[in-house]
């Protein structure tokens, strides 16, 4: 559970994620997660859906999402790429948008676009179990299960791998046969859960 103290300022949060509050709060529905009209249009086109509300006031808000763990990410000007379902709330100073991510969506069925968060401030990510943050360097590329990936920052290239030996991990029933390979410099947030794993449906 995440407690956010507000003193007249505001946060943007996933709809329905607030479980309780003390003090005086007002709520405003945001039409989309993106930048005004353009963000909205992008949303419509991409199918990335994130119903967002803005909470403003004095007091304490408590956010939670299906008993998931909450991970705080501090951004200092860099860009965070996050799966839309994993973004719980952000400082209202952070800009959110969408970005084309290539192939990952096609394997996950999540659409081809991912949510971006940019600026200076804090974002809260939810994950099934506390997320593990893994650093990628040019010397140490990282392979991640698409079902466990939740977010990344930095200059990373994503590749899809369906390596030959990897087929050994695919269940007979089929299912996911991909892993994402990250190369470059950056951080990858992975949740300790494999609903959609390389091994296929659990």
């Amino acid at each position: 559970m995440l407690a956010v103290d507000l003193t007249g300022d505001s946060v943007k949060a996933k709809n329905g994620a607030m479980v309780a509050y003390e003090g005086e709060m007002t709520f405003k529905k945001k039409t989309g997660g993106g930048e005004g009209l353009r963000g909205m249009v992008t949303r419509r086109l991409t199918g990335e859906q994130m119903a967002v509300m803005e909470v403003k006031g004095h007091g304490t808000c408590y956010f939670a999402d299906r008993a998931s763990e909450i991970n705080l990410v501090s951004l200092n000007g860099e860009k965070l790429y996050v799966e839309v379902g994993n973004l719980l709330c952000t400082d209202s100073a952070l800009r959110t948008g969408t970005s084309f991510t290539g192939l990952r969506g096609s394997s996950q069925g999540n659409g081809l676009f991912t949510t971006t968060v940019e600026g200076t401030g804090q974002a809260a990510l939810v994950s099934l179990g506390t997320a593990v943050v893994l650093r990628v360097t040019p010397q140490t590329p990282l392979q991640v299960d698409p079902g466990a990936y939740i977010a990344h920052t930095g200059g990373l290239e994503q590749h899809f791998q369906a390596g030959v030996n990897f087929r050994a991990l695919i269940g007979e029933s089929g299912g996911e046969s991909f892993q994402i390979r990250f190369e470059g410099d950056g951080l990858v947030y992975v949740q300790p859960s494999e609903r959609n794993t390389i091994g296929g449906e659990v």
């Binding site: 559970m1 479980v19 309780a20 408590y62 939670a64 999402d65 299906r66 008993a67």
Partner: peptide, 9 residues
Amino acid sequence: MVYVQASEE
């Protein structure tokens, strides 16, 4: 005192 769970489910 009110007891609140960390989930809206």
